[in-house]
Amino acid sequence: MVWTLPEPMLAEPVNNPALPPGWAAEPKWDGYRALLARYADGRVIIRSRRGTDMTAAFPEITRAAASLPAGVEFAMDGELVVWEEGRVAFERLQGRLNRTAATAARMAAQWPAHYVAFDLLRLNGTDSDLTAKPYAARRAALEQLFADHALPPPWTLCPSTTDPAAAAEWLDWSAVGMEGLVLKNLRGAYRPATRAWRKYRVAHTTDAVIGAVSRSLADPATALLGRYDQAGRLRYAGRSTVLSRPLAAALRAQLSPAGEEHPWTGRTFSASWGTKAALTVALVVPEAVVEVRADVSRDGAGRWRHPVKVVRLRDDLAPADVPLFGDDTAAG
Protein backbone atom coordinates (compact mmCIF):
# COMPACT_ATOMS: atom_id res chain seq x y z
CA MET A 1 0.00 0.00 0.00
CA VAL A 2 1.36 3.42 -0.97
CA TRP A 3 1.02 6.16 1.65
CA THR A 4 2.42 9.65 2.01
CA LEU A 5 3.31 11.86 4.93
CA PRO A 6 0.56 14.23 6.10
CA GLU A 7 1.00 17.92 6.76
CA PRO A 8 2.43 18.53 10.24
CA MET A 9 0.15 19.43 13.12
CA LEU A 10 0.80 22.95 14.42
CA ALA A 11 0.75 24.79 17.75
CA GLU A 12 -0.92 28.02 18.82
CA PRO A 13 1.34 30.43 20.75
CA VAL A 14 0.28 31.07 24.35
CA ASN A 15 1.59 33.35 27.08
CA ASN A 16 0.96 30.96 29.98
CA PRO A 17 3.07 27.80 30.43
CA ALA A 18 0.71 26.23 32.98
CA LEU A 19 -0.11 22.58 32.20
CA PRO A 20 -3.90 22.04 32.26
CA PRO A 21 -5.44 18.79 33.57
CA GLY A 22 -5.75 16.22 30.81
CA TRP A 23 -2.78 17.62 28.89
CA ALA A 24 0.85 16.56 28.47
CA ALA A 25 3.92 18.77 28.12
CA GLU A 26 7.02 18.26 26.00
CA PRO A 27 10.17 20.39 25.74
CA LYS A 28 10.16 22.73 22.73
CA TRP A 29 13.35 22.00 20.79
CA ASP A 30 15.46 24.56 18.95
CA GLY A 31 15.87 22.72 15.66
CA TYR A 32 14.23 21.86 12.35
CA ARG A 33 10.76 20.35 12.44
CA ALA A 34 10.83 17.16 10.38
CA LEU A 35 8.43 14.38 9.44
CA LEU A 36 10.14 11.06 8.74
CA ALA A 37 8.75 8.12 6.78
CA ARG A 38 10.37 4.68 6.84
CA TYR A 39 8.80 2.25 4.36
CA ALA A 40 8.84 -1.54 4.62
CA ASP A 41 11.30 -1.79 1.72
CA GLY A 42 13.83 0.43 3.54
CA ARG A 43 13.07 3.62 1.64
CA VAL A 44 13.29 6.78 3.78
CA ILE A 45 11.86 10.27 3.31
CA ILE A 46 12.54 13.26 5.58
CA ARG A 47 10.33 16.26 4.94
CA SER A 48 10.40 19.74 6.46
CA ARG A 49 7.47 21.64 7.90
CA ARG A 50 7.27 23.49 4.57
CA GLY A 51 7.22 20.24 2.59
CA THR A 52 10.85 20.42 1.46
CA ASP A 53 12.57 17.08 0.93
CA MET A 54 15.48 17.03 3.40
CA THR A 55 16.44 13.38 2.96
CA ALA A 56 19.76 14.09 1.23
CA ALA A 57 20.59 16.91 3.67
CA PHE A 58 20.65 14.54 6.65
CA PRO A 59 22.41 11.36 5.48
CA GLU A 60 23.13 10.19 9.04
CA ILE A 61 19.40 10.14 9.88
CA THR A 62 18.54 8.51 6.56
CA ARG A 63 21.09 5.74 7.15
CA ALA A 64 19.83 5.12 10.68
CA ALA A 65 16.25 4.73 9.45
CA ALA A 66 17.21 2.59 6.44
CA SER A 67 19.25 0.21 8.63
CA LEU A 68 16.27 -0.88 10.73
CA PRO A 69 15.05 -4.48 10.20
CA ALA A 70 13.24 -5.29 6.98
CA GLY A 71 9.50 -4.83 7.16
CA VAL A 72 9.59 -2.08 9.79
CA GLU A 73 7.36 0.73 8.57
CA PHE A 74 6.44 3.95 10.35
CA ALA A 75 5.94 7.70 10.09
CA MET A 76 7.19 9.99 12.84
CA ASP A 77 6.95 13.65 13.66
CA GLY A 78 9.91 15.19 15.41
CA GLU A 79 12.75 17.69 15.45
CA LEU A 80 16.22 17.57 13.94
CA VAL A 81 18.78 18.97 16.38
CA VAL A 82 22.55 19.18 16.70
CA TRP A 83 24.24 19.03 20.08
CA GLU A 84 27.49 20.93 20.58
CA GLU A 85 29.28 21.45 23.89
CA GLY A 86 26.23 20.45 25.90
CA ARG A 87 23.68 22.63 24.15
CA VAL A 88 21.42 22.53 21.11
CA ALA A 89 23.26 24.42 18.36
CA PHE A 90 20.69 25.62 15.83
CA GLU A 91 23.40 27.34 13.78
CA ARG A 92 24.90 23.95 12.87
CA LEU A 93 21.70 23.07 11.02
CA GLN A 94 21.47 26.18 8.87
CA GLY A 95 24.08 25.12 6.36
CA ARG A 96 22.50 21.75 5.63
CA LEU A 97 19.79 22.77 3.19
CA ASN A 98 20.65 23.77 -0.37
CA ARG A 99 24.02 22.00 -0.24
CA THR A 100 25.52 19.23 -2.36
CA ALA A 101 25.38 15.66 -1.11
CA ALA A 102 29.14 15.70 -0.50
CA THR A 103 28.91 18.89 1.59
CA ALA A 104 25.97 17.52 3.57
CA ALA A 105 27.98 14.36 4.29
CA ARG A 106 30.94 16.42 5.54
CA MET A 107 28.69 18.48 7.79
CA ALA A 108 26.99 15.33 9.08
CA ALA A 109 30.39 13.93 10.02
CA GLN A 110 31.43 17.15 11.76
CA TRP A 111 28.12 18.02 13.43
CA PRO A 112 25.89 14.92 13.39
CA ALA A 113 22.19 15.54 13.86
CA HIS A 114 19.80 13.70 16.14
CA TYR A 115 16.15 13.00 15.43
CA VAL A 116 14.00 13.79 18.47
CA ALA A 117 10.76 11.87 17.93
CA PHE A 118 7.67 13.24 19.65
CA ASP A 119 4.77 11.66 17.72
CA LEU A 120 4.01 8.47 15.82
CA LEU A 121 1.64 8.80 12.86
CA ARG A 122 1.86 5.34 11.26
CA LEU A 123 3.10 1.93 12.34
CA ASN A 124 3.25 -1.35 10.45
CA GLY A 125 0.31 -3.60 11.22
CA THR A 126 -3.36 -3.97 10.52
CA ASP A 127 -4.21 -0.56 11.99
CA SER A 128 -1.28 1.38 10.61
CA ASP A 129 -2.71 4.93 10.51
CA LEU A 130 -2.54 6.34 14.04
CA THR A 131 -3.50 9.96 13.35
CA ALA A 132 -7.11 9.52 14.49
CA LYS A 133 -6.03 7.97 17.79
CA PRO A 134 -5.59 10.15 20.90
CA TYR A 135 -2.18 11.54 21.79
CA ALA A 136 -1.92 9.19 24.80
CA ALA A 137 -2.27 6.13 22.53
CA ARG A 138 0.17 7.48 19.94
CA ARG A 139 2.67 8.28 22.69
CA ALA A 140 2.41 4.75 24.12
CA ALA A 141 3.00 3.28 20.65
CA LEU A 142 6.01 5.55 20.13
CA GLU A 143 7.55 4.47 23.43
CA GLN A 144 6.93 0.81 22.55
CA LEU A 145 8.60 1.26 19.14
CA PHE A 146 11.72 2.65 20.85
CA ALA A 147 11.69 -0.23 23.34
CA ASP A 148 11.11 -2.96 20.74
CA HIS A 149 14.05 -1.87 18.59
CA ALA A 150 16.25 -0.41 21.35
CA LEU A 151 16.72 2.61 19.12
CA PRO A 152 20.17 4.15 19.73
CA PRO A 153 21.45 7.60 18.68
CA PRO A 154 20.76 9.41 16.40
CA TRP A 155 17.26 8.45 17.63
CA THR A 156 16.05 10.34 20.70
CA LEU A 157 12.69 9.89 22.40
CA CYS A 158 11.30 13.29 23.35
CA PRO A 159 10.38 13.51 27.06
CA SER A 160 6.69 13.86 27.88
CA THR A 161 5.00 14.51 31.22
CA THR A 162 1.60 15.13 32.75
CA ASP A 163 3.22 16.46 35.94
CA PRO A 164 2.99 20.29 36.12
CA ALA A 165 6.05 20.42 38.40
CA ALA A 166 8.19 18.49 35.92
CA ALA A 167 6.98 20.67 33.05
CA ALA A 168 7.88 23.80 35.04
CA GLU A 169 11.41 22.44 35.58
CA TRP A 170 11.87 22.10 31.82
CA LEU A 171 11.50 25.86 31.50
CA ASP A 172 14.95 26.10 33.09
CA TRP A 173 16.48 24.19 30.19
CA SER A 174 16.75 27.34 28.06
CA ALA A 175 20.49 27.48 28.84
CA VAL A 176 20.99 24.29 26.81
CA GLY A 177 18.86 25.44 23.89
CA MET A 178 15.31 24.47 24.83
CA GLU A 179 12.82 27.13 23.74
CA GLY A 180 9.97 26.36 26.12
CA LEU A 181 7.07 23.91 26.17
CA VAL A 182 4.61 22.31 23.76
CA LEU A 183 1.30 21.34 25.37
CA LYS A 184 -0.83 18.52 23.93
CA ASN A 185 -4.31 17.28 24.81
CA LEU A 186 -4.09 13.64 25.89
CA ARG A 187 -7.34 12.87 24.05
CA GLY A 188 -6.50 14.89 20.94
CA ALA A 189 -6.07 13.34 17.50
CA TYR A 190 -3.23 14.32 15.18
CA ARG A 191 -4.80 17.04 13.03
CA PRO A 192 -2.62 17.99 10.04
CA ALA A 193 -2.10 21.73 9.39
CA THR A 194 -4.25 22.58 12.43
CA ARG A 195 -3.09 24.65 15.41
CA ALA A 196 -4.56 22.43 18.12
CA TRP A 197 -1.41 22.11 20.23
CA ARG A 198 -0.11 25.00 22.32
CA LYS A 199 3.43 26.37 22.52
CA TYR A 200 5.05 28.59 25.11
CA ARG A 201 8.40 30.22 24.41
CA VAL A 202 10.72 31.22 27.25
CA ALA A 203 12.59 33.68 25.06
CA HIS A 204 10.57 36.70 23.98
CA THR A 205 10.97 36.10 20.26
CA THR A 206 8.75 36.01 17.20
CA ASP A 207 9.10 35.88 13.42
CA ALA A 208 8.91 38.39 10.56
CA VAL A 209 9.50 38.59 6.81
CA ILE A 210 12.31 40.71 5.37
CA GLY A 211 10.85 43.14 2.83
CA ALA A 212 13.90 45.36 2.40
CA VAL A 213 17.34 46.16 3.78
CA SER A 214 18.94 49.50 4.46
CA ARG A 215 22.08 50.71 2.66
CA SER A 216 22.32 48.07 -0.09
CA LEU A 217 21.71 44.42 -0.87
CA ALA A 218 25.47 43.89 -1.22
CA ASP A 219 26.13 45.45 2.20
CA PRO A 220 22.94 45.36 4.33
CA ALA A 221 23.00 47.39 7.51
CA THR A 222 19.53 46.72 8.94
CA ALA A 223 16.47 44.74 7.90
CA LEU A 224 13.04 46.26 7.24
CA LEU A 225 10.51 43.75 8.44
CA GLY A 226 6.97 42.98 7.42
CA ARG A 227 4.02 40.77 8.14
CA TYR A 228 0.97 39.96 6.09
CA ASP A 229 -2.44 41.18 7.21
CA GLN A 230 -5.76 39.36 6.96
CA ALA A 231 -6.21 40.66 3.40
CA GLY A 232 -2.85 39.23 2.28
CA ARG A 233 -1.03 42.58 2.10
CA LEU A 234 2.56 42.85 3.30
CA ARG A 235 2.54 45.51 6.02
CA TYR A 236 5.65 47.22 7.37
CA ALA A 237 6.14 46.00 10.97
CA GLY A 238 9.41 47.65 11.97
CA ARG A 239 13.14 47.86 11.50
CA SER A 240 15.95 45.85 13.02
CA THR A 241 19.00 47.01 14.90
CA VAL A 242 22.31 46.86 13.02
CA LEU A 243 22.90 43.36 11.71
CA SER A 244 25.88 41.38 12.90
CA ARG A 245 28.49 40.53 10.26
CA PRO A 246 27.55 36.82 10.14
CA LEU A 247 23.86 37.67 9.75
CA ALA A 248 24.55 40.24 7.07
CA ALA A 249 26.59 37.66 5.16
CA ALA A 250 23.84 35.04 5.51
CA LEU A 251 21.23 37.48 4.23
CA ARG A 252 23.32 38.44 1.21
CA ALA A 253 23.20 34.80 0.15
CA GLN A 254 19.44 34.46 0.72
CA LEU A 255 17.92 37.73 -0.51
CA SER A 256 17.03 38.62 -4.09
CA PRO A 257 16.27 42.10 -5.47
CA ALA A 258 12.57 42.77 -5.94
CA GLY A 259 10.88 44.08 -9.07
CA GLU A 260 8.35 46.88 -9.35
CA GLU A 261 5.57 44.56 -8.16
CA HIS A 262 6.92 44.74 -4.60
CA PRO A 263 4.14 46.10 -2.32
CA TRP A 264 6.50 48.71 -0.85
CA THR A 265 7.54 50.17 -4.22
CA GLY A 266 7.57 53.96 -4.03
CA ARG A 267 7.36 54.05 -0.26
CA THR A 268 9.73 56.25 1.75
CA PHE A 269 11.11 55.04 5.08
CA SER A 270 12.38 57.38 7.79
CA ALA A 271 16.05 57.14 8.72
CA SER A 272 15.10 57.26 12.41
CA TRP A 273 12.16 57.95 14.68
CA GLY A 274 11.09 61.57 14.74
CA THR A 275 12.96 62.63 11.60
CA LYS A 276 11.88 63.24 8.02
CA ALA A 277 15.25 62.18 6.59
CA ALA A 278 14.75 59.31 4.14
CA LEU A 279 16.45 55.96 4.60
CA THR A 280 18.26 54.41 1.64
CA VAL A 281 16.74 50.97 1.15
CA ALA A 282 16.87 48.07 -1.29
CA LEU A 283 13.61 46.19 -1.72
CA VAL A 284 13.92 42.40 -1.76
CA VAL A 285 11.65 39.51 -2.67
CA PRO A 286 9.71 39.03 0.61
CA GLU A 287 10.38 35.35 1.20
CA ALA A 288 13.16 35.21 3.84
CA VAL A 289 11.95 34.74 7.42
CA VAL A 290 13.93 35.82 10.48
CA GLU A 291 13.40 35.33 14.20
CA VAL A 292 13.54 38.59 16.13
CA ARG A 293 13.65 39.60 19.76
CA ALA A 294 11.09 42.35 20.30
CA ASP A 295 9.02 43.98 22.97
CA VAL A 296 5.27 44.27 22.55
CA SER A 297 5.27 48.08 22.31
CA ARG A 298 3.42 49.18 19.19
CA ASP A 299 2.77 52.52 17.60
CA GLY A 300 -0.70 53.55 16.53
CA ALA A 301 -0.36 51.71 13.22
CA GLY A 302 0.56 48.38 14.80
CA ARG A 303 4.31 48.51 14.13
CA TRP A 304 7.04 47.77 16.66
CA ARG A 305 7.86 51.08 18.29
CA HIS A 306 11.51 50.16 18.97
CA PRO A 307 14.09 48.51 16.69
CA VAL A 308 14.11 44.73 17.08
CA LYS A 309 17.14 42.46 17.17
CA VAL A 310 17.42 39.79 14.49
CA VAL A 311 18.33 36.58 16.30
CA ARG A 312 18.76 34.32 13.30
CA LEU A 313 17.65 33.46 9.79
CA ARG A 314 14.83 30.88 9.75
CA ASP A 315 15.30 29.15 6.41
CA ASP A 316 13.04 26.36 7.67
CA LEU A 317 10.03 28.70 7.74
CA ALA A 318 7.95 30.34 5.00
CA PRO A 319 6.15 33.72 5.11
CA ALA A 320 2.89 31.83 5.68
CA ASP A 321 4.30 30.59 9.01
CA VAL A 322 4.79 34.16 10.31
CA PRO A 323 2.13 35.63 12.64
CA LEU A 324 -0.25 38.11 11.06
CA PHE A 325 0.39 41.85 11.26
CA GLY A 326 -0.29 43.26 14.72
CA ASP A 327 -0.46 39.86 16.42
CA ASP A 328 1.16 40.28 19.82
CA THR A 329 0.29 36.79 21.05
CA ALA A 330 3.02 35.25 18.92
CA ALA A 331 5.80 36.73 21.01
CA GLY A 332 6.69 34.87 24.15
Rank of each mutant, 00 (worst) to 15 (best):
V284K: 11
E60Q: 07
D328P: 01
W155L: 02
R201W: 01
A132P: 07
E287C: 14
G259Y: 03
A18P: 02
S214Y: 06
G22K: 00
T126F: 05
K28V: 01
R92N: 04
T280H: 03
D207E: 10
T52H: 13
E7Y: 08
W23I: 12
P192V: 09
L224E: 14
S128D: 15
R201C: 05
A318M: 08
Q94T: 12
W264F: 12
A75Q: 13
D129A: 08
D127H: 08
P154Y: 02
F146M: 10
G188F: 11
R99Y: 00
R38N: 12
H262S: 11
A89G: 06
S244C: 05
P164M: 10
L36D: 04
W173P: 12
W111G: 01
S67L: 07
T222Q: 15
E73L: 14
Y228E: 08
S174D: 15
A189S: 11
A105Q: 00
G211W: 02
S272N: 12
V82T: 01
R314M: 04
N98I: 00
L279N: 10
W155Q: 02
A25S: 01
L142Q: 03
L121V: 09
P164H: 12
T162G: 15
A282K: 05
V182E: 05
P307I: 05
A75G: 06
Y32D: 02
R293C: 10
L97Y: 14
D219A: 09
T62V: 01
T275G: 04
V296D: 15
R50F: 07
G51V: 03
D172V: 03
V290K: 04
L313C: 08
V2H: 13
L234Q: 04
D41N: 09
W155N: 03
V284L: 11
I210Y: 08
E60P: 00
W173G: 13
G302C: 10
V310L: 05
E291H: 07
V72N: 10
P164T: 03
N124E: 15
A18V: 13
A330I: 06
R138P: 09
D163S: 05
A330P: 10
E85F: 04
H149M: 02
A189D: 06
A11V: 09
A37H: 09
A57I: 01
S297L: 11
V296M: 06
R106E: 03
V176F: 13
L279Y: 09
G326S: 07
L145F: 03
A331I: 14
T280P: 08
L224T: 06
N16Y: 10
A147L: 05
L35S: 07
W273I: 13
V290A: 01
P307W: 02
F325K: 09
H149N: 07
